[in-house]
Amino acid sequence: MNRHLARFMAVSTVVAMTAGGAMADDFIVVQSTTSTQNSGLYDYILPIYEDKSGVQIRVVAVGTGQAIKNARNCDGDVLLVHAKPAEEKFVAEGYGVERTDLMYNDFIIVGPPADPAGVKGMKDASTALNKIADSENIFVSRGDDSGTNKKEVALWKAAGVDPSQSSGQWYRETGSGMGATLNATIGMDGYTMTDRATWIAFGNKADHEILVEGDKALFNQYGVILVDSEKCPRVKSDLGQAFVDWMLSDEGQKAIASYRLDGKQLFFPNAPNVTN
């Protein structure tokens, strides 16, 4: 009877050992952000590139801060995030070959329709944030060092408010991705800042709506960087460069521009040397 046990063990071991095998080598890992993933952009453009090149693009979607850290650990071939100063630092320290503008969308401030802080229709982000702070209505922050979070912190600074003094009171830091933060915002009937793409694709809006948009300060620039093989010898430079080149090419840029959700364009390509 012990034979059965032994056989079960043996079979399961074989299963376990082979489970990780049989992986195609033609793939690259892109460290990116939840905002691009949650918007559905990758599901739309990656198959186009994969069909054309035969190279599989594996996207790890985390916050921008985490994505940059992962890339610093050489756990990715390409970095696609939205926090320009951090990206430039990454390149300056030799981890990235070169940073190139890829596309943009914009940030918006969403909140409850009753709008107790009275910011609806405002164009100026600083003034709007000041009003929210003064009214002490709940504002939900990512608080996760992501690109969106970095942008939000910069806006608070520009507005002359230090919300961290009120953390845990009207200023709530979720330490989570955009989606989880939006869910929390809906649940607390509060305000938050999000990128437009994630908001449009978000399925649990309840009756929250866009209250503040259109400020130049809310501009959200995405950049793309090939991880440097001098720091990270195992980086697949050729495959990675080919992907970056395609994203920046007319074809790639058109693909980004043609992604629509609910009839709305979510990302606006703006790579250099390309006219749109």
Partner: peptide, 21 residues
């Protein structure tokens, strides 16, 4: 890494769909 078609499992899909609302 919750990579589509490579390492996406039930629970990470649930987490992803939750974050998509």
């Amino acid at each position: 890494g919750n990579i589509n078609h490579v390492t996406r499992v039930m629970t990470t899909t649930i987490a992803l769909e939750t974050s998509k609302g």
